[in-house]
Write a protein that binds this DNA or RNA. Sequence first.
DNA 1: GTCTATAGTCTGATAGAC
DNA 2: GTCTATCAGACTATAGAC
Lengths: 195, 195
Amino acid sequence: MGSTPRRGDTRQRIQDVALDLFAKQGYEKTSLREIAEQLDVTKAALYYHFKTKEDIVLSLFRDLSEPLDELIAWGERQPRTLETKQELLRRYSAALTGVEPLLRFMQENQATVRELSIGQFFKDRMIAMSGLIRDPDAGLTDQVRCTTALFSIHASLFAMQTIEGDPEEKRQAVLEVALDLLAQAHAPAERLGDR
Amino acid sequence: MGSTPRRGDTRQRIQDVALDLFAKQGYEKTSLREIAEQLDVTKAALYYHFKTKEDIVLSLFRDLSEPLDELIAWGERQPRTLETKQELLRRYSAALTGVEPLLRFMQENQATVRELSIGQFFKDRMIAMSGLIRDPDAGLTDQVRCTTALFSIHASLFAMQTIEGDPEEKRQAVLEVALDLLAQAHAPAERLGDR
DNA sequence: GTCTATAGTCTGATAGAC
DNA sequence: GTCTATCAGACTATAGAC
């Protein structure tokens, strides 16, 4: 038994290969033929499991959508304190761990994702996160600090590739910098001594 | 005179329309037919001015390549001091001003640009900039600070869209935060007092 | 410098047999 | 659940007239 590999997990295999190719060479440049060939099935087999090409992408994003929605809902129930914002960043960082290929795909194919119905969804979520983190009445510089804090966590997975080191250690370092930025945005007046 | 508009500037007009459409809907989703239609010429006319579709993109990037190369060359001639790095950030921020649509296109079509011969060029330049800004022997957190400083300038054009305000004021605010991050990465030990 | 016409290829998607 | 066969439409790119 087992000489005929994989039966019944075709749907999962399609998702795996699709995400891999989408992240590697982009959504548009990846054809269904290519995905099918790599799985040794035909295009028609793909259409049994997914209605359209876009449907494959939608299925990939389901794992990311729920944790993100829960995080925002949690944030909206909390008092708008520095501690809440810091916890938001910590949870956000944790939520993104393990979905790096998906994030990379989203990051590198923004133009595509934007028109892919899932695009508006994530735009709304980023605006919501931004609204929870920064204070519209604060100074411009402090707003930039907060936005940079949020964005640095988001971007760390691709921007920090030139830095060597253990991924988890890097994640902690990014989180530390982000929390610092947040604290500075909420500090009274004096910052780095003189300067 | 002037009733027959635009003669001889077709090449420039192609570049303008192409960049606009590429930035708006992505490189792959923009066909040469679409560009030609918007200019009221035929596809063949496009091929008179540009050898391929990729060639249009290459021509767009020429304005950005030279200032960036000069900046890196300048940086490599300077002593590796905090002042040099701060000046690098200032010049980098200035160099990016005015080419926002091009940057947005590059940002949102990374997957495409990466395979477009110009991709390796910019990857090399970003690595070079990163090498000038951060110190590989410094602590992980300080390296993240430096990378975030560089990246925040780069990303400010799209990440800060939720913040209201004059673009130039926002640019200054981003620069201030970036310079702060740089200074903190080079500060001795004590940071924000207690915290 | 710009046109028409078209070659040649690939795409996402469907119908129907097994 | 996977196959073969095929669709209509879109694409980049070229040849050659004007």
